[in-house]
């Protein structure tokens, strides 16, 4: 069962604040994102990939923000690196993995229950109209 350690959650929160900072109407990741839901979103991630990610996030939790910001810049630039060697390949995968995690609890219904302001989904004015055929069962959430 994949489960982020508390230190890893600290790490993803620090990374999240770089991807999604406080910016005008937008709240900071650390304010609005429901990091408590992250464990629900990684159940299908292969165990060895998850262990590596958890370890990287633990290391991130100890790094100063300015170093993390520099590192994320390196990750982003790896996307334009034409090289196929191991390091840029790993950086690209890490970059996309981290962005996926952050955006999944920022631009989604999984916001921090203690956050009372407008959520990022409300700020971008995203709303879906679902015309259901029959009552939804409990497994399907956030109807």
């Amino acid at each position: 069962m994949n489960h982020f350690s508390n230190r890893a959650i600290t790490g993803i929160t620090k990374v999240g604040d770089i991807y999604c900072p406080k910016n005008g109407e937008f709240p900071a990741f650390s304010e609005a994102a429901g990091t408590q839901y992250l464990n629900n979103l990684v159940s299908n991630v292969p165990e060895d990939d998850f262990s590596s990610l958890n370890l990287v996030l633990i290391i991130f939790s100890f790094l100063p923000a300015f170093i993390l910001k520099w590192l994320i810049g390196v990750f982003e630039r790896s996307m334009d690196n034409p090289g196929d060697s191991i390091l840029p390949s790993l950086l690209r995968q890490l970059n996309l993995g981290l962005r996926g995690l952050c955006y999944s609890v920022y631009y989604s219904e999984f916001s921090n229950p203690e956050y009372k302001g407008r959520t990022p989904l409300q700020i971008i004015d995203y709303h879906l109209n679902r015309v259901e055929l029959e009552p939804v069962k409990s497994e399907a959430t956030f109807v």
Binding site: F110, E139, A140
Partner: peptide, 11 residues
């Protein structure tokens, strides 16, 4: 009636 209703859960 049991498919996830959010994008995050879908992924």
């Amino acid at each position: 009636n049991t498919f996830p209703r959010t994008e995050a859960e879908t992924s």
